[in-house]
Design a protein around this nucleic acid. Sequence first.
DNA 1: GGCAAAGTTTAGCATTGGCTAAACTATATG
DNA 2: CATATAGTTTAGCCAATGCTAAACTTTGCC
Lengths: 146, 146
Amino acid sequence: MKLTRKRGQTAKLRSAAFRRIRADHQTELAGDYVELIADLIDERGEARGTDVAMRLGVANATVVKTLKRLQDAGLVTQEPYRAIFLTGDGWKLAEDGRRKHKIVEGFLLALGVAAATARIDSEGIEHHVSEETLRAMARFLARNGG
Amino acid sequence: MKLTRKRGQTAKLRSAAFRRIRADHQTELAGDYVELIADLIDERGEARGTDVAMRLGVANATVVKTLKRLQDAGLVTQEPYRAIFLTGDGWKLAEDGRRKHKIVEGFLLALGVAAATARIDSEGIEHHVSEETLRAMARFLARNGG
DNA sequence: GGCAAAGTTTAGCATTGGCTAAACTATATG
DNA sequence: CATATAGTTTAGCCAATGCTAAACTTTGCC
């Protein structure tokens, strides 16, 4: 070979980031669903498939299919034609998502980002921030009025 | 119906965020690929499939398949068994990714996040920040030494 | 020049997450 | 209490992204 010298070390280091992104994406959808379901339960007493579909902007059938996976994963329970409930694990995941969401959104607002943008961006960012970064954001928030 | 009153408005507003996240995910992979290919070309003069696979932490075959899509999308060019090149659009996308990456990573460092964490988190965050948030980060960076 | 090793591609499979259209159930109300 | 409508599920499709194993090129080197 000609050009292939001394890789591997940096490669392995960098690939860690991408591996985590792929892992994050897998839990991201589940997180969005349970957080949304938790919100619906709190807001209106129950979560129905149609509401979830509407808020996520996907088709009903997609929600049904995804809920099946979430049920297999032990995050929600549901009987045919009835409302959706969260399991203990489901609530835990939802609460964690809300916690992160609140920090990130509040942080963006404190940074001077407009409310609408903060809401949209925080939704995307929340699943990719480590606890360390969250702590840094919370620290900033504490100092700069949150 | 019993419980279904006054939704739709909030629903549509919220779904916008999720729609954007899904759209972001579609371009995210392409962005990661071209950014990585650009880095490899700059670092070592050429980008080979194996290097891309190694740094992304995926199998070789996955890279081949993805590159085919990127080629269809007009971002890269490649002949069988040869190195990978970026098209004009490919370079543009890569440069844009680098620009965002630099701002986000620098910002996290300025926030007080450790270097290793900043590197990993910025990789995940860079595809989900709007231009407005980037400007806010750049502003912060300008004031707090970057 | 030919061979072994490194690199690359092909083939074939699985899962996720999206869709539409059609079938089915629950329920509000006339 | 029958039925129309709203809500839900099923069936069947597609594209993207991952994998392994096997086949095929390239190339460094003897």
